[in-house]
Structure formats: structure tokens, C-alpha cells
């Protein structure tokens, strides 16, 4: 997600608002962009150091709710991409579940 003030609060707030649990949460700025090149390619953008953060959340839910959580997170304006072990959602690119 974009490293902007308030962005983290929106994600965390969303979990509470929609009744999902957070088991653990970890956030730090991305310094090595190598694993994220596919996002840059798909969206046609270039990340700069300090601009984006990676947020890792652990939660325990069923498949259907997981899909709903991913879609709700993906809707937040400052989120660039969101994925679980199976699918990745990218802004505007993915119109269906499992692009990758």
C-alpha cells in the first residue's frame, strides 16, 4: 500500500468494522522491490524507495470470508495490491478471482 498517513488505520479499521479478527500484524516500508516487479509491470508503475509499505496480517477464516476480506481491502484507495496464499488482487487489472 501507499505509505501515506492514515492508510494503516484504514486497513485495521476495516477488520474491526466488518467483524474480522486480526491474529497478528506486521508492517514495514519496502526496500527490495524485486518480489514486486510483477505488480509494477501489471499496473505500469514504478515504485520509489519510501513510497510503499508491505502489511502482513494473519487471520483465521474460511475461504469465502477470505475472498470477501481480500476484496474489501482491495477497495481501499491506498492499497495497491492484496494477496493471500492463493490469489492476488491488483487494482483495476484483476476482474476475476485467480489471475495468478
Amino acid at each position: 500500500m501507499e505509505n501515506k498517513p492514515g492508510a494503516l488505520a484504514r486497513v485495521v479499521g476495516l477488520f474491526h468494522q466488518r467483524g474480522y479478527n486480526i491474529d497478528s500484524l506486521h508492517v514495514d516500508p519496502i526496500e527490495d522491490f524485486e518480489p514486486f516487479r510483477f505488480i509494477e509491470d501489471e499496473l505500469g508503475i514504478k515504485f520509489q524507495v519510501g513510497e510503499v509499505s508491505r502489511l502482513t496480517i494473519r487471520t483465521t477464516v474460511g475461504d469465502r470470508l477470505m475472498r470477501q476480506i481480500l476484496r474489501q481491502i482491495n477497495k481501499l484507495i491506498e492499497v495497491i495490491a492484496v494477496s493471500d496464499e492463493e490469489s492476488t488482487y491488483l487494482k483495476g487489472i484483476l476482474r476475476n478471482e485467480n489471475l495468478l
Binding site: 499496473l43 508503475i45 487494482k91 476482474r95 476475476n96
Partner: peptide, 15 residues
């Protein structure tokens, strides 16, 4: 243009 915001407009053909 907001790079992290790109809502769909036209549907995909297979849909």
C-alpha cells in the same frame, strides 16, 4: 490519475 485506484468500466468479453 491515482495509481492505486482504477475501478472497472467495461466488462471482460468472456463474462
Amino acid at each position: 490519475h491515482i495509481r492505486s485506484y482504477n475501478p472497472p468500466v467495461r466488462p471482460e468479453n468472456h463474462q
